[in-house]
Design a protein around this nucleic acid. Structure first.
Lengths: 285, 285
DNA sequence: TAGATTGTTAATCGATTAACAATC
DNA sequence: TAGATTGTTAATCGATTAACAATC
């Protein structure tokens, strides 16, 4: 109750805040794939393709066809056996399910490079998202234009949210400002937040937060990349550290038994950069 | 086999391409959370906090403590019962596990607003990622500087990747160019790709692709937002469409029995924007 | 009718979580 | 020793997938 932290968007969920995910019975994993299907269907629609099979559509969306059929089964029986799915009809049904048949005014707070990129992002306008306002706290930025819109001062936030009934806010500020901006957005009435700042935001119940973290994605890639190249132990790495679970645990115990020196050693070793710089700004405004 | 499509990064996986996820036994969901823990630990380290309990660290990372302890158990026994975890030691162990104790040269292709934002992103340099080069195909962009680095021409791609042993590439081009850029990156020797273009990339086995999709995140928020506000049926929406599964399926059958007209109708209805604009560029270079 | 393809079932797999014995 | 906290177990939940009956 009270305040909860957001669910992570890029990891297989989150945990912390159980959103009303299964509202109306659609699994969260399915919801996350609907935009993928919609994109593939939109492309087919533009090529005037009338119908598509689960196999074809799945290939276009990059998923397996059984999964796609299962996903669609949560929406209803929108296909025709022996034929496939009517492209236009599916586009409409998925759009409606996602809530894209209505207009969603959005405010973007923090107009640096990333804010600019988002303001210009073609995928927004075409999906029912409308940039209601660009906001920044920096007087040097306020008054400039981005994507044809004037950057307005944070002080106007509350009025804009109220006037245009904004329910979605995008945070592209430096991390130190993120929680504060988040609080103001929530206070003003915003109930969904897309956070690009590398910060864990705390929000009241009823407010959804999704986050996009650029550096986390790279770190996950690095993890997998690391195990592609040979598997030679890194300098300073004990062979025991690569052993199976039980052996490794025993090794850790031995180190501790040695008086904790092993830990201190390791913390210095090749990670001399240890206390490395912070994740500074999402992007320097 | 041969070519596979990438795994989605922001959805609870993917399916298409089973990566060597459990290499050495660490679940993918855990790997995705390690960067979160690392960030929280780095903050503690900077405040010179010597030890932290699973409860405290979990709160800082926005997850539940049982999950955190389970995650850490895959890495080894790095804690001390009754005490907690040594912050410096954990920072080192997680960094090493993620492969961040080594240097990762990265190329960024497509230097528009998003490319700029990434080039300036503080979280990169501080995590062992080094921007080896910024590349663009546009002669008007080539030669300019971003984040203090010169933007070089795509033609230099192969030489740069070879010279600096780049294994990670970031694609921030318009979607139409993404697959082509991807092919060139892979051909040059890159084996991990972070894709910001709203396109499903096809890559050979052995190449990892993660994607970050700005518009998908907003669409997922819209889905949840939609169900917060009242639940009044949208114009053009049959009450039957909101009924439980079996009834809805029956309704769909009735529509089809009616000769498919219902589908055609629906496709027009309130989604007049039906064949809506495409997701144009990630960001107009 | 014969061929194609959906929608659903059921088995499997992976992730989450509470609870608690081990142990510092 | 007593209190604290980890590491692990086991139960539960949700997601994936192949297979196939239903049916166009």
């Amino acid at each position: 109750m009270g305040r909860s932290t957001q669910s992570s968007s890029q990891s297989p969920d989150s945990g912390a805040a159980r959103r009303p995910s299964r509202a109306r019975g659609i699994p969260e994993a399915t919801v996350a794939r609907l935009p993928l299907y919609l994109r593939a269907l939109t492309a087919l629609s533009e090529r005037s393709v009338p119908t598509v099979s689960s196999e074809e559509l799945a290939a276009a969306a990059g998923v397996n066809s059984a999964k796609l059929r299962k996903d669609f089964s949560y929406l209803g029986s929108y296909g025709t056996r022996g034929v496939g799915y009517d492209v236009e009809y599916l586009v409409y049904q998925i759009s409606r399910e996602l809530g894209l048949t209505q207009d969603w005014p959005v405010v973007i707070v923090g107009i640096g490079n990333l804010g600019h990129a988002l303001a210009n992002y073609g995928g927004f306008a075409s999906r029912g998202f409308r940039v209601a306002a660009l906001l920044d706290a920096d007087p040097n930025v306020v008054g400039t234009t981005a994507a044809g819109l004037p950057v307005r001062h944070m002080d106007e936030l509350e009025a804009i949210v109220a006037d245009q009934q904004v329910s979605i806010g995008v945070i592209t500020t430096p991390p130190v400002a993120a929680q504060q901006v988040c609080d103001r957005l929530v206070e003003a009435g915003v109930t969904s937040i897309l956070n690009f700042a590398p910060t864990v935001l705390t929000v009241p119940d009823g407010v959804d937060v999704r986050k996009v973290d650029l550096s986390i994605e790279l770190q996950i890639l690095a993890f997998h990349e690391q195990r592609k190249a040979g598997d030679e132990p890194t300098a300073g790495e004990s062979v025991l550290d690569r052993a199976p679970g039980p052996v490794r645990a025993a090794a850790a115990k031995l180190r501790r038994a040695a008086g904790g020196t092993a830990k201190a050693e390791a913390a210095k070793g090749p990670s001399a950069k240890g206390t490395d710089g912070d994740l500074s700004a999402v992007m320097p405004a």
